[in-house]
Computed example of a mutant assay.
Amino acid sequence: MSEQYHELSLCTLAHPDKFYFIHQHIVDAQTAQTADANTKPIAIVYALAGLYLMIEKNYTGRQVQQAHLQLSKNKKNLPSISLPEKRGEITAQEILKAPPGPQRDAAIKGWCLSVWDAYENVRDAIITYCDENLK
């Protein structure tokens, strides 16, 4: 992982809004964006589920964490994910250029959206997986 991602992690872990827990969103964006053949399929699926829940269902980072816990109860039916060649143009380095506060929070959301959009080929599989495993 990049030095910029680690720096951004420190910033999000120190974020004043502990209830929302924005850190979870950067973990999911980074995991999905940097996944490769050595990344465990469960990590990719959970990251994409987190991005889906954040972007399309307006989940907070805390709610995504709770969803990951619920998903962990049934690891047998993971969808097969093919990694797209391009996975979003925004990176942790760009996020750090935004001033801390609302502008950086908005930049993080933009990063998550760009990564989620890059995986449009598996969107339906992730939605089905979440629908079947989140009650």
Rank of each mutant, 00 (worst) to 15 (best):
D105S: 11
S114F: 04
E89C: 04
A29Q: 05
A106K: 15
Q63D: 14
A49S: 15
R104F: 06
G50H: 09
V64N: 03
E132V: 08
T31P: 03
A49M: 08
T12D: 05
A32T: 08
I42G: 00
I26K: 06
D117L: 11
P16C: 04
S80P: 02
E7Q: 15
E132M: 12
M54N: 13
A32G: 07
P79L: 04
W111A: 00
Q66N: 12
L96E: 03
P79I: 05
E56V: 03
V64S: 05
D36P: 06
D36C: 10
I127V: 13
V27W: 14
V45Q: 01
Q24L: 05
Y59K: 02
T12G: 00
S9C: 14
K40Q: 14
R87C: 04
N58Y: 09
A29E: 04
Q66A: 10
K135Q: 11
C130V: 03
Y129E: 00
A43Q: 14
N121R: 07
W111I: 01
W116T: 00
N38W: 07
N38R: 10
P41T: 09
A35P: 01
Q63R: 10
A118F: 01
P79E: 01
K97D: 11
E85K: 15
R123F: 10
A98T: 07
N74E: 13
P79N: 01
R104M: 13
A32R: 06
A35Y: 00
Q103H: 07
P16E: 12
P84V: 02
D124W: 06
H6A: 13
P79M: 04
I55W: 04
L53Q: 09
A37P: 01
Y46V: 01
E85M: 11
K97C: 09
L83D: 03
F19H: 12
Q33G: 02
N58K: 13
Q93G: 08
I108S: 02
T12Q: 11
K86A: 14
H23W: 12
K40T: 08
P100R: 14
A47D: 09
E3L: 13
P84A: 05
F19V: 14
A37Y: 08
E132T: 09
L96P: 00
V122T: 15
A49Q: 08
K40R: 13
I44A: 06
E56R: 08
I90M: 07
P79H: 01
S2R: 05
I127N: 09
D131P: 00
G61V: 07
A125V: 06
L71S: 00
A107L: 10
K86L: 15
L113P: 00
P79R: 00
P100G: 07
L113I: 12
D105W: 10
Q93H: 11
H25Q: 11
N121P: 06
I26A: 03
S9L: 15
A49P: 08
A43Y: 10
W111K: 00
N38H: 12
A37G: 08
Q24E: 10
D28Q: 05
D117S: 09
D117T: 11
